[in-house]
């Protein structure tokens, strides 16, 4: 809630220190060090198999790290389970849409809102009796332009709509940092532009860490771009710098 205090805090929202991960013999993440400050808009790019999603899975606690540390809001969360990290104010979306397909749009959002509320354990009252949660879901859906489809089962939405809903779910818990895993994956170029605009309109105090393949979206949204190659951060700079970098063009833009 209190974005102002975070603003004033010197501590970074997310800090990765010498993060490593290997699967058997494969080193998927090598010595990654990264800081995300409040309100930062950072992107990580890299060719397929560079270890981008693995990095997200480490940050969100889906995979345990091999070595290194993860700090969220100044706390060492390296060995925390996912749900506790989320509780600190982190949210993420998935490259492959991970919604609740047989539930309605509003039920999806309600689940996302309840995730960080103690009432999620209440079993003697109807969910529908929690008016505040409902109102919040309404507001979120209204903002995203989903209100007319709130009772549609998610599996009946179009792919583009599902990608958008992914982000709505990410925002539902009022996170202070949002990890977006290829939000424009599988979208048409028109839809991608729409997605970029949607992202640019988000609360400016919200920190965003973005993995993306679609360079237009990246250049629109991010202030700073890092290049990941074979699990290693090669270069970091402004969109302009990255565009100019010959090294990046060699390993990434050139091969794309």
């Amino acid at each position: 809630m209190n974005t102002d205090t975070t603003m004033n805090e010197p501590a970074p929202v997310l800090k990765l220190t010498n993060l490593c991960k290997s699967f058997g013999g494969l080193q998927a993440t090598r010595d990654v060090t990264l800081r995300v400050m409040p309100g930062d808009r950072k992107a990580i790019i890299g060719p397929n198999g560079a270890g981008k999603t693995t990095l997200f899975n480490l940050i969100t606690g889906i995979h345990p790290v091999t070595s290194g540390q993860i700090h969220l809001f100044g706390q060492d969360v390296t060995n925390w389970p996912s749900h506790r990290r989320t509780a600190l104010g982190m949210a993420r979306t998935f490259q492959v849409t991970s919604l609740f397909p047989k539930l309605t749009v509003i039920d999806n959002v309600l689940l996302a809102i309840e995730g960080l509320r103690p009432t999620k354990f209440v079993m003697w009252r109807f969910q529908s009796s929690y008016k505040d949660v409902y109102d919040k879901a309404h507001t979120l859906l209204e903002q995203a332009g989903f209100l007319d489809r709130k009772d549609t089962e998610v599996r009946n939405l179009s792919h583009g709509e599902q990608r958008q809903l992914e982000i709505v779910l990410g925002l539902a818990s009022n996170p202070k940092i949002l990890l977006l895993d290829e939000p424009a994956a599988g979208l048409s170029s028109g839809e991608s532009t729409e997605m970029a605009h949607f992202l640019m309109k988000l609360d400016p105090t919200l920190a965003i860490l973005l993995i993306e393949h679609d360079m237009d979206v990246v250049f629109d949204v991010a202030d700073e771009i890092s290049v990941l190659h074979f699990g290693e951060l090669l270069e970091t700079g402004t969109p302009e710098q990255i565009k100019q970098s010959t090294r990046v063009q060699e390993i990434y833009l050139g091969t794309d």
């Binding site: 989320t86 609740f100 397909p101 689940l111 996302a112 309840e114 960080l116 079993m123 109807f126 969910q127």
Partner: peptide, 22 residues
Amino acid sequence: RSPFGKSLLGIRERELRMKILG
């Protein structure tokens, strides 16, 4: 139909997402 019951539905549908949702 309670918040807890809905959380079970969420787990049935997509367990990983539920973890990430807190």
